[in-house]
């Protein structure tokens, strides 16, 4: 099953370690087109058998720049969030994996998007039961997020920079913040600030589901962490996100209808 894992890469030096683990599908965060990724790659550094990872919401100038890049490179596929990217690649013979972060939470929507893409990363905001139901109807089509820090907020603003400027204190990037025993890890670049929920999400059990791919976001982890997590020897903390906990839809029942 490990040959169906796509993992984001922090460093080219990690590749051999992952290959030894049986992981051979790599997603490279593209410099200038990602948020929340501490390490990104120039287009020249990305091999033709790699996936581009693009998680920014793009303005017009950026989508035009990306178009120029995509017209001049050879790659295996793209994992992307902005639907404008789909318009750029719809006629290109590359694998298209849609990662709409918090959308893709129901079977019908996922089926509709699959008319345009080869696979998509299912939202991490649904329960395991919901995920199983969706996956049972779409065997070998989905990409399931199984491991890593999960994005919980993406702001276009430079929130860490603003904070350090306002208080005239050194800029700590990444930055960890907390309230009521809940923690978030923030990372900022020129394109915005990403909040990740802490601890990291461990849904390795989801590899029991028949999926097209399993996705690992290795941001703020290294290959040693990944190896230990896969071997169930990781000593750090992790959780199961919302796999067992359904979020509240309606705050109060109103029977006046």
């Amino acid at each position: 099953m490990k040959n169906k894992i796509i993992i984001t890469i922090n460093s080219l030096d990690e590749l051999n370690n992952y290959l030894k683990l049986g992981i051979n599908l790599f997603a490279y965060p593209l410099k200038g087109f990602c948020v929340g990724m501490p390490n990104t790659f120039l287009i020249e550094e990305i091999p033709s058998d790699g996936y581009l990872f693009i998680n920014r919401i793009l303005d017009n100038e950026s989508i035009d720049k990306l178009n120029d890049i995509l017209n001049n490179i050879k790659i295996k596929g793209i994992i992307f969030d902005d639907l404008g990217v789909l318009e750029l690649i719809k006629n290109k013979d590359i694998e298209k994996i849609l990662y709409l972060s918090h959308f893709n939470s129901n079977l019908e929507s996922i089926k509709l998007y699959l008319e345009y893409v080869d696979s998509l990363i299912v939202s991490t905001d649904i329960t395991k039961e919901e995920l199983i139901n969706i996956n049972n109807n779409l065997k070998n089509k989905l990409t399931i997020f199984i491991l890593g820090y999960v994005p919980s907020m993406y702001s276009r603003r430079l929130l860490i920079d603003n904070y350090s400027k306002f208080y005239n204190i050194p800029k700590n990037n990444p930055l960890k913040i907390m309230n009521n025993q809940k923690e978030f890890l923030l990372y900022e670049n020129d394109y915005g600030t990403m909040f990740y929920h802490v601890p990291l999400f461990n849904g390795l059990e989801l590899m029991n589901l028949e999926a097209k791919y399993y996705f690992i976001n290795s941001a703020f982890l290294n290959s040693d962490d990944i190896q230990k997590l896969l071997a169930n020897k990781y000593e750090g903390s992790y959780d199961r996100g919302f796999l067992d906990t359904e979020t509240i839809y309606k705050l109060k029942e109103d029977n006046s209808d």
Binding site: H102, D125, Y154, K182, G192, T247, K250
Partner: peptide, 23 residues
């Protein structure tokens, strides 16, 4: 919103209320 709208689930984590379903 401080977040790009649709890209925030802080409420889900802080309160278990689903940001993208009215919470």
């Amino acid at each position: 919103c401080t977040s790009i709208s649709g890209k925030c689930v802080l409420s889900n984590y802080m309160t278990n209320r689903d940001s993208n379903r009215g919470g």
